[in-house]
Simulated assay, not measured.
Amino acid sequence: MELTPYHARYFAHELTKRSSSASVDSLTLALADAQVDLNPHQVEAALFAFRSPLSRGAILADEVGLGKTIEAGILLSQRWAERRRRLLVICPANLRKQWGQELSDKFFLPFAILETKTFNEEIKRGNLNPFEQPRIILCSFQFARTKSEYIRQTPWDLVVIDEAHRLRNVYKVSNKIANAIKTAIANRPKTLLTATPLQNSLLELYGLVSFIDEFTFGDLRSFRAQFSRMNTPDDYRALRERIRPICQRTLRRQVLPYVSYTNRHALVQEFIPNDDEQRLYALVSEYLQSPRLYALPASQRQLMTLILRKLLASSTYAISNTLLGLANKLETAEQAQ
């Protein structure tokens, strides 16, 4: 029996009335044939993403190894079961095939990887917008930027962005890729996946949240006025409450009751530096403790100090290129004056 578009929408409406997307019953139906063992936090994350009707999406920020790809697969399966099949996954180029394999092997969902070659082939076949296909579209960040106008014209039912922290500096005008993608999917439902929503600065969290909802923090000036100085527990509590409706994060220690991890035992190897290595360590430490470091931005000084000390502890070869880069930076700045 072949359904007309009218009857397909009618049956989808009837099924939605029986069980909404944000219910376990609905997910059970959509995942009946899926070849994956779901954990409670993954189901909860998917339900969280469906429960945000007032926003245009959610950030799923579980720690590394807790199955964010599975959580996104649940969302995509549910939308596919609802016959809402304009689905897009934007991810790093080296993860496109992995995403396709996950969708095919575990959720039995059809997919197409769009790149320059496959895009042009679709154009030659008469498809003037290759993003409009009866399959889940997978593409890289760079390709999404170059074809952002096609993405903007497509009425997506869901956009998933994997490794979303790569777009965290979207608040900077100079970040062309992030701004192009943000504009292209501005009015579409979206889910951001990242294990590190915050790395160096709170402004990165502001950038990711702005992908979902521009009004959560207001403009950049308002955010800085409220959260630039986090000095008390109340400040952190206020920030958590502000992002609670759109950000879900599960930590490894929270899943220990039902996920068993292999215990790791550190093997300590004693190392005694020679005289030259000890002298280098002392010189670099003295430099890093200087009152002013023109080669390091003040906002990044603490982070760069940690990185340099780790490189220094690794080997002289590991830190040599970094020190050379700092020296070249200072020479360039001096010549420019």
Rank of each mutant, 00 (worst) to 15 (best):
A184L: 06
K182G: 04
E334M: 13
R9T: 14
S23K: 04
W80T: 11
E277G: 05
L128N: 12
A45I: 03
E115Y: 14
S148C: 14
R292L: 11
V89K: 06
L267S: 07
N129L: 06
N175Q: 12
L167G: 05
D33F: 07
A34Y: 04
R221S: 13
A46R: 06
A184S: 15
A12F: 02
N169S: 15
T332R: 15
Q300A: 12
K172D: 13
R292Y: 10
R264E: 11
A46M: 03
S320T: 09
T250H: 08
T332M: 11
E115T: 06
K172A: 13
A72E: 07
Q98M: 00
C91Y: 00
I123A: 01
L66F: 08
A282D: 13
S290W: 02
Q302F: 10
K17V: 10
E122P: 00
T305V: 01
T191L: 10
A61M: 03
I181Y: 03
R242S: 10
Q226G: 01
L293V: 07
A295R: 05
G218V: 01
L208C: 04
Q42N: 10
E44M: 12
D25V: 08
N175C: 05
L306E: 08
R292N: 12
V64D: 03
R51F: 00
D62Y: 08
F215M: 09
T146L: 14
R221N: 13
F223R: 06
A225S: 12
L267Q: 13
R86F: 09
R168Q: 11
L330M: 14
T316S: 15
K329T: 09
I59R: 02
T4Y: 02
T332G: 05
